[in-house]
Amino acid sequence: MLLESNHSVTFNLSTPAPGGGCPPVGIQLEGVILPPVLTVDVVLGLLGNVLALWIFCWKLPSWSPNSLLLFQLVAADFLALLSLPLRIHALLAGHWVFGDAMCRLNLFLMFTNRSASIALMTVVAIYRYFKVVHPHHRLNRMTKRQAGWVSAAVWLLVVAPRAPMLAYSHIKGSGNGTQCFFFTSYKESSRALLALVATHRLLTVLEFVFPFALLLFCSLRIAGFLRRRQMGKPDKVRKAIRVCVVIIAVFLVCFLPTTATTVGLWAVRSFRPWDCAAFYTLTQLTIVSFGLNFLNSALDPLVYVFSSSTFRKALVSSLPRRLRLRRGRMFSRFVGQVHHRVAF
């Protein structure tokens, strides 16, 4: 994932810079595409997550372990949404005006949100898998206190690899040319920063591949369990498979593009280091896909709706009395249709 300067430099993309590597170049595409995309992410994300926060804090009669895990997703989304307006301002103004400390915090929050969203959605899907396929497993007797410890462990796992980002300055240029971005070329002035960039790229790929493999495993196992189950009430199983499908859809839309372009950048860096044209093409694609990462903040409320019946009931009950019954029936019919299609 790259955050580039908006100042362009003319050079020959087909040849590397003297001394090796591709020279840093401003990518104007970022300033054109990202502001409207990130603005949509912020508006939709705030609308959905403010509503979700209100329901979690004031409308839920009680919290289950699943509700506690979902609430962590709301927290992760708010961290990212609070950081995006600064990035939008920098893109529109053409330079960074908020100083070095805010630059470090801004990048840290944006990258941490991706990791936290992936990790928490994976935990929710695994918890649902055990509820359905292994109903007698002791994990299903998890208390809210234990769910809190699980959440703390997830946050520690997410924050620890990203924390070194706070130790380095990411300010480039000076005056009206000041920019806040992670890296721009093969060569950096600090070996430590270069190692941090390599770690970031590795995490970007691994934190998608392994959770996605787990999600597919859970979904296939639940689907197989559903097909074998011919008696009893299949509602819980159908809800579980619906949750997995929604989470997988969010994964593919929001996180797959960045993962694919990151792998492409690694391949060019490793096998075609002289091909600066390919490097900057993939850089631009990465910048475009960067905006999709934060679309998860707008889509996560769908995860809350489809994975928690308590949340759905609280959402319907929060509607005005005049609309509650009619909207409640329409909402239930819509969920039931999706529920039927997913299950069968």
Rank of each mutant, 00 (worst) to 15 (best):
S174D: 14
N176P: 15
G177Q: 12
G177D: 13
Q179E: 11
C180R: 02
C180Q: 01
C180L: 03
F181W: 11
F181R: 01
F181G: 13
F182V: 10
F182W: 08
T184L: 09
T184K: 11
T184Q: 14
S185Q: 08
S185C: 09
Y186T: 04
Y186N: 14
Y186D: 07
K187Q: 06
K187F: 05
S190V: 04
R191T: 12
A192H: 09
L193T: 05
L194E: 05
L194A: 07
A195C: 03
A195V: 04
A195S: 07
V197H: 10
A198E: 10
A198P: 06
T199S: 06
H200L: 07
H200D: 12
R201Q: 09
R201M: 12
R201I: 04
L202A: 12
L203T: 09
L206R: 00
E207K: 07
V209R: 02
V209T: 07
F210R: 12
P211G: 01
F212I: 04
F212A: 13
A213Q: 08
A213T: 14
L214I: 12
L214A: 15
L214K: 02
L215W: 10
L215Q: 15
L216D: 02
L216F: 11
L216Q: 09
F217G: 07
F217C: 13
C218A: 14
C218V: 10
C218P: 00
S219Y: 10
L220P: 07
L220A: 15
